[in-house]
């Protein structure tokens, strides 16, 4: 029982990372029909920016909570800006080109970000400052750390906030509208380019939060960390039904749990096989993912 609880908490923690990153995939896909293959690397850049701020602030001896808050906010803003810049220079010129062209461009951006970070920070691991350590409490025989609890709570708050934003603000409604029909949205007076940029900003900022939290949780980051998280998060977005925001959240948490259980009860060597088999199985039964709506085509 204690092992089970331990795995659930571990799964929810990694699942939170996946969910936050998956939101970026799903929002961008929903709005411009692009699978942003660079999004995993945006997450990685967020982790490195957070690391840079934290290590710089470490010398100032300010309380760790404030330092962490500053690191989170700066990383969110800068990573969000990076996402917007990528959209502006690499994707926007291709929005009306064939989808595969923009997909290849996204792969190019992914490669450029990885190798850019490699050139700046080197190929090795960078160690995050140990702010909280492994302090925690025992629940049902399982040791649960405060950092796990913090990650899960913060992720759920961000996800709830995003949901409210998309469904109950004008900008959010505009996002959903232009996902359906860009020209019609323009006729409503919506500045479509601006709203797309806001979407990229939000998705990238959420990925940055995930990046900083992953750095704190696993304590080590390197230039290649975006690949596996990006892959899992993308899987999560599709599992939940790509383009669907609650779907991405649920998909992320499910993949996190699946990973924890397969590592705990089978072997971590087979985790990816199990994750993909579950995904393929789900899509065979429900081709639009768990929360995806069926697209009715009019003839």
């Amino acid at each position: 029982m204690s092992e089970f609880i331990q795995l659930v908490i571990a799964g929810l923690t990694t699942g939170s990372f996946y969910a936050l990153v998956a939101l970026g995939y799903t929002m961008v896909y929903g709005i411009v029909r692009l699978i942003n293959f660079a999004h995993g690397d945006i997450f990685m850049v967020g982790a490195f920016l957070g690391w840079t701020v934290l290590t710089t602030l470490a010398a100032t001896h300010m309380p760790w909570g404030i330092g962490l808050l500053i690191a989170l906010i700066l990383s969110m803003i800068l990573t969000g800006g990076l996402g917007v810049a990528v959209e502006r220079f690499a994707y926007q010129p291709l929005l009306s080109a064939p989808p595969l062209s923009i997909l290849i461009t996204a792969l190019g951006v992914s490669l450029a970000l990885e190798n850019g970070v490699l050139l700046i920070f080197g190929p090795g691991f960078n160690t995050y400052p140990q702010l909280i350590g492994s302090a925690g409490f025992v629940l049902g025989g399982a040791h649960i750390t405060f950092i796990q609890v913090g990650i899960i709570i913060l992720s759920f708050l961000l996800m709830a906030g995003l949901y409210l934003f998309v469904h109950h603000t004008f900008i959010g409604t505009a996002m959903r509208a232009l996902a359906v029909d860009r020209d019609a949205a323009r006729l409503m007076g919506i500045n479509v380019e601006r709203v797309i940029q806001i979407t990229f900003f939000l998705g990238s900022s959420l990925a940055a939060v995930a990046g900083v939290m992953e750095g704190l949780y696993y304590t080590e980051i390197n230039f290649f960390m975006g690949f596996i998280v990006g892959l899992r998060a993308f899987t999560a977005a599709v599992l939940g039904g790509i383009g669907n925001i609650p779907g991405a959240m649920a998909g992320g948490l499910l993949i996190g749990l699946l990973e924890a259980f397969s590592a705990g009860y089978i072997s971590s060597r087979w985790t990816d096989v199990i994750v993909f088999l579950v995904l393929i199985g789900t899509l065979v039964v429900k081709p639009t993912g768990l929360f995806g709506e069926r697209v009715v085509e009019r003839m």
């Binding site: 062209s101 792969l107 190019g108 450029a112 850019g116």
Partner: peptide
Amino acid sequence: FVFAIALILLM
């Protein structure tokens, strides 16, 4: 890195 940038520019 240069290959990646070249790829983006070509596309």
